[in-house]
């Protein structure tokens, strides 16, 4: 291929940058965290944004960025290997190459929280903790700008919990509480068994001074949203991150539409009062 064709890189939004895996962390039996070496050209991302990851010859998937936003040398993604592309990605190790386009999409509104030092309530389900991890990093890095941080995290079983080491570290910070719950367990687990809304019952929060961010399977987010509203939190203070089929990530392919929204560019993070009414309509 002639050299000059490469000049289109950067100009062509569909053309990935190819990055090497610096470190692969096997999180669970079906989930891996890949740290990509991006020391050359890392564009700044905001917590909640995603990249399109391309596995050579296999295809592309939209994956949220799960690393620290202030690390310009590394792009971190946590990937659950369940599909034709993510399945093989699970097998990647140090030195492997992934294509990356991005970052894309809307971000978690951290300024809404830091503005006035409000409390932040995170509700994560399953792999949904990954898109919230940059928020946690940011809040801990700029601890004084924020009020209390409550992390409620639900997973299928104890073995499915992500970032176990970090969960233990996070709860050591002052004003940070981390509560976990699993759907089912089989003996050795002495933590909570139940659902994410049970965890919400165990925490007190001030609806006037709290922002909630929810990320997880859509149905889990719906239940969490309803429970938050029942507890007095205004829908305008609740944010959730949506997922739909995506091919382009920039609003051209049409796949990710949810009524008026393109999840890729209007989302993935939405204020709940804007998106929630759409979720109750079947097959929208």
């Amino acid at each position: 291929m002639p050299e000059q064709e490469y000049n289109l890189q950067g100009a062509d939004p569909m053309l990935p940058r190819f990055l090497r895996v610096r470190r692969a962390v096997v999180e669970t039996h079906d989930t891996i965290t890949l740290e990509l070496d991006d020391s050359n050209a890392a564009p700044q991302f905001a917590p909640g944004q995603f990249n399109m990851l391309y596995l050579f010859g296999a295809g592309e998937v939209a994956i949220s960025i799960s690393g620290p936003p202030d690390d310009r040398q590394t792009l971190v993604h946590t990937i659950r290997g369940v599909g034709a592309v993510t399945g093989p990605i699970l097998q990647l190790r140090r030195g492997a190459i992934l294509g990356v386009r991005g970052p894309y999409g809307s971000a978690w509104p951290l300024h809404e929280v830091s503005n006035g030092g409000r409390d932040l309530l995170l509700m994560a389900g399953g792999i949904g903790l990954a898109p919230l991890r940059p928020v946690i990093y940011e809040v801990l890095r700029r601890r004084r700008e924020f009020g209390n941080l409550t992390i409620l995290y639900g997973a299928r079983t104890p073995a499915d919990l992500l970032y176990r080491g970090e969960l233990a570290q996070w709860r050591m910070f002052p004003g940070v509480s981390v509560k976990l719950i699993v759907d089912r367990a089989a003996g050795v687990w002495s933590g909570r068994i139940g659902v994410i809304t049970d965890l919400l019952r165990t925490v007190q929060f001030d609806p006037a001074e709290t922002i909630a961010m929810i990320c997880g399977p859509e149905v889990m987010m719906r239940f969490a949203y309803h429970e938050l509203v029942r507890r007095g939190l205004a829908a305008e203070r609740i944010y959730m991150s949506m997922e739909r089929n995506m091919k382009c990530a920039v609003g051209w392919c049409g796949h990710c539409q949810l009524s008026p929204f393109f999840i890729c560019k209007d989302g993935p993070v939405f204020r709940a009062d804007r998106i929630q009414p759409l979720l109750a309509t079947r097959e929208l």
């Binding site: 079906d30 659950r80 369940v82 599909g83 399945g87 389900g125 399953g126 639900g154 997973a155 299928r156 499915d160 759907d183 089912r184 139940g194 659902v195 809304t197 049970d198 019952r201 997880g216 399977p217 149905v219 889990m220 239940f223």
Partner: peptide, 19 residues
């Protein structure tokens, strides 16, 4: 009521991996 609600959500197995 609370327990039934919890059980229903557990029944949905929302974190199950689908391919």
């Amino acid at each position: 009521h609370v327990r039934l609600e919890r059980t229903r959500i557990q029944l949905l197995d929302v974190y199950r991996a689908d391919t």
